[in-house]
Design a protein around this nucleic acid. Sequence first.
RNA 1: GGGGGCAUAACUCAGUUGGUAGAGUAGUUGGCUUUUAACCAAUAAGUCCCAGGUUCAAGUCCUGGUGCCCUCACCA
Length: 502
Amino acid sequence: MAELFHPDRLQKLEDLKASGVNPYPAQAAFPPSANQAEAPARSLAADLLADAENRFGEVVTIYGRVLGRRGYGKLAFLDVHDQSGKIQACLQKDLLTAEDFALLKQLNLGDFVAVCGTLKPTKVGEPTVFGSRFRLLTKALENPPEKFHGLADTELRARMRYVDLFANQEVREVFLRRAAVLQALRGVFLQHHYAEVDTPVLHPIYGGANAKPFVTHHNVLDMDLFLRIAPELYLKRLVVGGMERVFEVARVFRNEGLSMRHNPEFTMIEFYQAYSDVYGMMDLTEKLVVAAAEAAGCKQEDGSLSATFRQETFSLNPPFARIRYADAFAEHVGCDPSNRQAVAAKLAENKIEVAKENSDYAWWKAVNTLFEEFVEPQLRGPVFVYDYPAAICPLAKPLAADPVWAERFEFFLGGMELANAFSELNDPQMQLQKFEEQVADKDPESVNQVDLDYVRALAYGLPPTGGCGIGLDRLLMVLLGQDSIRDVLLFPQLRPESKLQA
RNA sequence: GGGGGCAUAACUCAGUUGGUAGAGUAGUUGGCUUUUAACCAAUAAGUCCCAGGUUCAAGUCCUGGUGCCCUCACCA
């Protein structure tokens, strides 16, 4: 970036100031004036357009950014964009004061303006505000992107999201829908009498998932802290304490690679409900996904729900399919996952090594590698896979009937794992043992220790509880049809722009 | 971290075999009272990502680096 401010614009700014125009007024509203009626309150472009025919003749006020201008000497059409959309304004010399008409000449694309005037159709019928008053609200010192293509460079779009958002209306739509989805999900939780909570992001011991953490340091306490990789263990402490239904919209941080599905920080919605279990969580997850889909605009004309993601259309009408892990495994891998010899043959065939002899965890981890390789790509979804191998589920309660399996499901959609839920393990001794095994099985570079305080909390008694975590960003990718997680994150992680900061 | 690709004006992009850096949009100036990617005329704008190298000559070829994209690895 050669210049932070466009030189021509700086000149214009000086000219404006010289002629007594404040390029950055504090208030948007038209100031009261002796010889002019008070301007009406602001209208949104979309509201005016929705009801234009009934409002023709009405005096209205619009605010927005000018992103198009077609000038004709003594008249100009402006495309005024606000959050809701775009409406045309027409400014004619006949209707304006000399000062306002002079100001029109100094206007640039990208500037914010207020226009007050009569809503009327043009000769071709487009609803247009024919301005009798007009003022500059903010001067822009940078050119907006090319008007036809918008901002296309993916790097610039992510780096300068503030430009992407106003230059590409569909991008703004994605993020407004993201906000609507979050609100809809909160609505479902409130209907089910959940309390929204905020638990710590800075953890002295990290846990609740298997991931590498970011490390930071508190100066006064003189201790290292980890940015949370999951809120799980804190949320269950709340259930121990008697907060029976809690959820958190939790930003979590994982110090791992980036990809179209991975960002170092992402949003997980976790929720826990006392006296429920994994099956209750399945029902609630289904309701949440449906509510999210409705808020995301997935409702079709016939009332059905569907989303198109990466050229594939997914029906989101409940109920979603439910399949046992072992059945899905048998179908796509070709053998019973409990048949050790058959599975060993499959592992050898696919050159998958069991990391450690005589370790249940290592064995089932390898089994799960087969699952990830052969089953998950086939799970187009929406589908719940349930009854996972207990050995790889340190936080889930084993099935009473067969403790090889645990009360856990994962929810798949669009080829991605979007949710993960358990009947929470609440036997403190078994939990301690599983934690210890897990730490012992860990690769050396991944420092981890048993969260003994969590085990102590369980010792005070965690009622039977169902818990679930939903990867909000990935869910939004599918619902909003965005290929990359970067396209549903306002500010995805990028390296700093060396030229700008140098 | 491995492999592949891209990087030229504020934006979108051309740039031939290595031979003076180009267009459209945006900007500036002028003209135009119903356009909508308005139009017409003039004009300004470049560290061709960075640093080396080859060459009489490099946007172009070579080496290294940086950033981004794709892919693999990592990733409950």
